[in-house]
Amino acid sequence: MSFIKNLFSNKTEVFQEAEILLEQNSPSCPITAIVEQDNRVVYFYLWGPENSNFGVKCSWVRNLKDAPDKQEKALMEKGISPMQTKQYCKFPEGQEKLEADKLSIIWLEEGDAAALLSDGEILAIIPSWAGQGDFLGYARDAKGHGDFAWELSDSNQMYDRITKAQEFWNAWDLDIDPFNSQQPLLLDAYDKAFGKQDKYYAIDGNEWPPKGLYLRQGTSKTVFATVGLSLLPMPAVEMYTDNRFETNRIELGIILDSAFTDKDIQEMGEWISGQSSLPWDNITFLGEGHTINFNPFNSTKFDYVIRTNKLNVLPQSEIEDYRHSKINLLWMVPISEKERQHVIDNGSADIIARLNQIGEHVFSLNRNEII
């Protein structure tokens, strides 16, 4: 993944191909952290998949030679990583090379941002909002608002987030890990709100992170609700909201009229399992009014769902906050293609208001369309 494909030289300097010092995958998102070093400069990258909006994010880490007075635009056009200019360097004369065996990565809990450390000291941070405007990332050895990294001041709130993230990841190695702690609390909240569970299923395919599915089979309605999605905050949330703690953790639920066969339950469980990883697999988030495909039971009319917890008929559960974040139980209400198109054209508020008017009919796959 080196940006330098060949050796370049001029009368005064030889440009070596960059060496990859460290490469590590995010624990929850399809993002790879890479640290590259040539004979002039060190950069920290986060690479997203080609089919995502994440792209490539990068932050300068340090210069290894005397900093230039002006931005190295000619070298950038050749694909050579530029040094930070002198006015934005704490060490304009350059610093020593980094040693690969001393480097480590701490991923933030969302999995879409990370910090680079050397011997346990933070050198650079690429937060989720990096790449917006002229901000690429933070670097310990930057000064001011540089072209390729901003100064990482002692008062930067990212220090606290990184410390808490490391504590969170370390907790998964404990005998009582986060899932073991939260699973009984979530199930208890569901039991109190919807009735004692009839069945519980693991829907994680024996892969991390662990996830389960609560099932309550009533005489006229069947309730499904996920258990464990809220352990990981969703990526990208803070790019769109001022208070990520209000919307970054979710569980998903669906209520339908009818009794289900074991085959129906398995099919529904498989579909919900697939939706449960959508935010992290796609480096995005799910929120109020969002829609996705709905394919269980081969319904000929209702082949989408809208996520909401704003319908009066929907039950509310008292789920306690987790790591200072509210846990939002988003109910997936089936809607038709025509109704979804109305959401796309007009936003979700009108559809949700119309669904609210039909009361318990929202649980039926045989209801009339409201558009």
Rank of each mutant, 00 (worst) to 15 (best):
A113H: 04
E99R: 15
N293V: 03
N51W: 07
D147Q: 13
Y322D: 13
L229H: 01
S277G: 04
G55W: 13
L186V: 01
W172C: 02
A114S: 14
T300Y: 06
D101T: 08
Q197S: 12
Q16V: 15
R161I: 03
L256I: 14
D321M: 08
N312A: 15
K73A: 11
F44T: 02
S220M: 12
V237F: 08
L136T: 10
E109Y: 00
I327E: 11
Y159R: 13
G144M: 07
F302D: 05
D350W: 09
E110G: 05
T308V: 10
I80L: 14
H324M: 09
V61N: 13
D281T: 01
T241Q: 14
I335N: 09
P68N: 07
R354N: 13
F148Y: 15
E17W: 01
K338I: 14
I31E: 03
L22S: 13
F3W: 09
A171K: 06
D188A: 09
E50I: 08
D242R: 06
I255W: 10
K263F: 05
P296C: 01
M83F: 04
S273D: 00
Y322G: 06
A67I: 12
N298K: 11
N366Y: 11
G195F: 04
E121K: 14
A202I: 00
A100W: 07
K57D: 04
Q95F: 04
E23L: 07
M234E: 09
F224C: 00
K211L: 00
F91V: 13
A18W: 03
G195I: 03
I20Q: 12
D321P: 04
F294L: 09
R307D: 00
E337C: 04
D242M: 06
I254C: 02
I20Y: 03
Q95L: 15
N10R: 11
P315Q: 05
F135D: 04
A171L: 05
D281V: 02
H324P: 01
N39H: 08
I31W: 03
L215F: 01
G120W: 08
I327M: 05
P315G: 03
N312R: 11
A236S: 08
F8A: 07
L229P: 01
G359P: 15
L103V: 06
C58K: 15
M76K: 13
